[in-house]
Amino acid sequence: VMLTGVGSAFIDQPLYGLPTAKTDEFLANGLGAKYAASLENLIVVSMGTGTSFVKVEGQQIQHIGGIGVGGGTLLGLSRLLLKTQDIHLIAEMARKGTLTNIDLQIQDICNKPLPDLPLDATASNFGKADGNASPEDIASGIIHMVLQSIGQAAILSALNSPIRDFVLIGNLTQLPQCKEIFPKLEEMYGVRFLIPKYSEYRTAIGAALTYMDGAPIHPIK
């Protein structure tokens, strides 16, 4: 049994009577995403409670940082503003919302596209919101702010490298809005975002791969 992630710190004995070991979460992220994408060079964007970035260059896997924006942000703001933390309800509300009632776009402040920025690019998340915004509009604004922030931070994390492939993993990849937001970022910045099959389980798959690949593990006895 292979364990990883912050929750593994609470396990101090073997599970199910089987040999049990722990491995580094960032290593598991890298191996799980690399295996899914069949790429040698990529940045793994692990969208959990917050978001971490792991650079993969061949056999070298390195955690390069992260941001405190993620699923925790989405749920916390939804509890405050929408009085719910049901992610399925929030996503459905957002689907019915109108983002332009919440976000200030380039076309709201300029009548011509800016270099590399189309008129419908976001100038300010929630910059247009007022007291008359509907819950559906707010839900749309929250999800777009979180996913856009993650995507743009990922792109910035690769500025000093030739990497242009980003593999998205974690539960937030299941949001239907990912299919709208990340392709728009691809077009604007000339990068590629991939959401592999079983993206929400890629860290667990990577933990298994650490054992199979002979990577460092820490047995629990």
Rank of each mutant, 00 (worst) to 15 (best):
S124N: 08
R79S: 11
E25K: 14
F126N: 00
G48R: 05
S161H: 14
L81A: 09
G76P: 11
T122I: 05
G71A: 00
G127F: 01
L89M: 10
Y16H: 14
P176S: 02
P14K: 05
F193Y: 14
Y211M: 10
S199W: 00
N29C: 14
K96F: 07
N171K: 14
T4E: 00
G97H: 05
S46E: 14
Q13G: 10
L194K: 15
L3M: 13
D116T: 11
G7D: 03
T173F: 06
V191M: 08
P183W: 04
P135I: 00
S161G: 07
I143R: 00
K34R: 15
E40S: 15
D130K: 02
T49L: 01
E136F: 02
L172K: 09
M47E: 04
L172I: 07
S157Y: 06
P176K: 09
A91C: 07
I195V: 15
G68R: 12
T84M: 01
G32Y: 00
I43Q: 09
K83P: 12
Y211A: 11
L117M: 09
G68A: 13
S124T: 07
Q62K: 15
E40C: 09
D108R: 04
Q152Y: 13
A91V: 01
H144R: 14
Q105F: 11
A153M: 10
N125Q: 02
P115Q: 00
G65H: 12
S149F: 05
L119R: 09
C178T: 15
E187G: 13
N101R: 13
Q60E: 13
G71R: 10
G151T: 06
L159A: 13
H218Q: 14
H88L: 04
S38T: 12
N125K: 07
V191L: 06
L74W: 05
L77S: 05
P14A: 01
P183G: 03
G17Y: 06
V191P: 10
E57F: 13
P176C: 01
Q107R: 12
N111I: 05
L82N: 02
K221S: 14
F182C: 06
P135C: 00
R164C: 00
N111D: 09
P118W: 01
S52H: 03
G76V: 06
I102W: 02
F126C: 03
V146C: 04
H218T: 15
P196K: 03
G70H: 08
T73E: 02
